[in-house]
Amino acid sequence: MTTHTAPAERLHHPPELEAEPFGDSALMLRVKNDDGDLRRAGASRLRDVLLGVRPYGVLDIVAGVESLLVEFDCLAVTHEQLAQIIRLAVAGKGLEPGAPGASQSLFVIPMVVSEEFSPDLPGVARELGLSPDAVLKQFQSSVLTINLLAAAMAPMMGGVKFPGQVSRCVEPRTNVEPGSVMVAGTNAIIQPFPGPSGWKVIGRTPLTICDIREDPATSYKPGDLVRFEVVPEREWERLEGRFLRASGGAGSDGSDGSNSDLP
């Protein structure tokens, strides 16, 4: 009989970490494993561990989908010393996820679907062998994890429950409107500002997800959770321009955010 072990259980025993020098003052960290889900979960948990421990000399921690870039003061610590400190921290704390919601915020993001806002939805549906409504149903039922902040602080999210991979556009668009909700593979991303993209657009949120007038400019971070909710087009005017704030989860202030009163 074959026993399948959940990623959280397999992370209970610290996996091997790859720590490669990245220039004179950074380490690239990866969880060494053939299981992509475990590598992603491990990288997310590793970030939480390092933010909690904050090893001496560390200046910044930059999240990737399956990796972490740790920048440090090379006058305070060496590559080898920092790698050893990190391995000791992992051995002491493990990479199993913490208590649910301990360091995560949940964002419920309204999304309007229309011919103008969802130009690629019919093509995505054909590609997946589903109806457009079925695509949206699966998308809304997915609880996504923000893996990293891409260009212009765009939240790149994994975990879309599609039955297959969504391809990118054959010809990238030169300009995608802010708030556009896009998919590729089983990932999703939101366009914070106008700009080019090769991801497929299936909707648009009326909320402002990045605003340099706010401090910080975004309310989300890697490791946070996201769920999308399709709302009627008539809701656009009411919600347009509101700054995205967390809907709940430990680590958020629990206040009523711009998206806390969805219909």
Rank of each mutant, 00 (worst) to 15 (best):
V181G: 09
V183D: 01
A184I: 01
A184M: 06
G185A: 07
G185N: 08
G185K: 11
N187W: 04
N187K: 12
N187A: 09
N187M: 13
A188G: 05
A188E: 01
A188C: 12
I190S: 07
Q191H: 04
F193S: 05
F193C: 05
P194E: 13
G195P: 05
G195C: 12
G195A: 10
P196E: 08
P196D: 10
S197H: 05
S197N: 05
G198E: 05
W199D: 00
W199I: 00
K200P: 03
K200H: 11
I202D: 03
I202H: 01
I202L: 12
G203R: 09
R204S: 08
R204N: 13
P206M: 06
P206Q: 09
L207E: 00
L207V: 06
T208Y: 03
T208N: 14
T208A: 11
I209D: 01
I209E: 03
C210I: 03
C210F: 06
C210N: 05
I212H: 12
I212G: 01
I212K: 09
R213K: 15
E214F: 05
E214C: 12
E214Y: 04
E214T: 02
D215V: 10
P216Y: 02
P216G: 04
A217L: 10
T218C: 12
T218P: 03
S219D: 15
Y220A: 02
K221Q: 15
K221G: 03
P222Q: 11
G223M: 10
D224M: 10
D224R: 01
D224E: 07
L225V: 01
L225A: 04
V226A: 06
V226K: 00
V226E: 02
V226G: 01
R227V: 14
R227L: 00
F228K: 01
E229Q: 15
V230G: 09
V231G: 13
P232Y: 07
P232A: 14
R234E: 15
R234F: 06
E235W: 15
E235D: 15
W236A: 13
E237I: 04
E237T: 10
E237G: 01
E237C: 01
R238M: 08
L239S: 11
L239C: 11
L239M: 14
L239W: 10
E240Y: 12
E240V: 12
E240L: 09
G241K: 13
R242T: 04
R242G: 13
R242C: 01
F243Y: 15
F243P: 04
L244R: 03
L244C: 09
R245I: 05
R245E: 06
